[in-house]
């Protein structure tokens, strides 16, 4: 079994102060020959992963040409989105394909949600210790 990588809880940008810490994760994303790092919330409450409009646009992909639409609902909805598969590298682990709902709005944050971030990675939160652990999901 691959040992977990340890990441810190960090103060929420624009948040309430030192006690307002969240599990933010930086992931190297690539598709269409474009590579960049994106930092977002590891979010068990998100049914799927999300990219805001400007972040997804950095890949140079035409939002209108993506063929799988969906409506993002819940806390940030309703927002139209298209599904975008992206190669992703988390910490020291081998690359995986992550599926994102690329929103037609910048009002949504980068989120790593249940489908399929939590399908690919096992995550343990240790808030009191100020850290969370990630490792490739075990069968």
């Amino acid at each position: 079994m691959i040992p977990p990588a340890v990441f810190p809880f960090v103060p929420r940008p624009g948040g309430l102060g030192p006690g307002d810490t969240v599990p933010l994760l930086t992931v190297r994303l690539s598709t269409n020959g474009v590579v960049f790092d994106a930092t977002g919330l590891v979010d068990t409450g998100a049914t799927f992963s999300v990219l805001p409009l400007d972040v997804g646009a950095r890949f140079g992909v035409d939002w209108n040409r993506l063929t799988r639409p969906l409506a993002i609902g819940g806390a940030f909805g309703p927002v139209p989105a298209r599904l975008l598969p992206v190669d992703a590298v988390v910490g020291p682990f081998p690359p995986v394909k992550l599926l994102f709902a690329w929103a037609r709005s910048n009002a949504v944050p980068v989120l790593f949600g249940q489908t399929n971030f939590f399908d690919e990675f096992d995550v343990c939160f240790f808030r009191r210790r100020g850290e969370f652990h990630i490792q490739p999901a075990t069968p």
């Binding site: 409450g45 799927f48 639409p69 940030f76 949504v108």
Partner: peptide
């Protein structure tokens, strides 16, 4: 869920 979709969106996710 804090972030979710409707049945059609969920179907699109499953297909993808």
């Amino acid at each position: 869920s804090q972030i979710t979709t409707d049945a059609a969106g969920w179907q699109a996710i499953q297909e993808a």
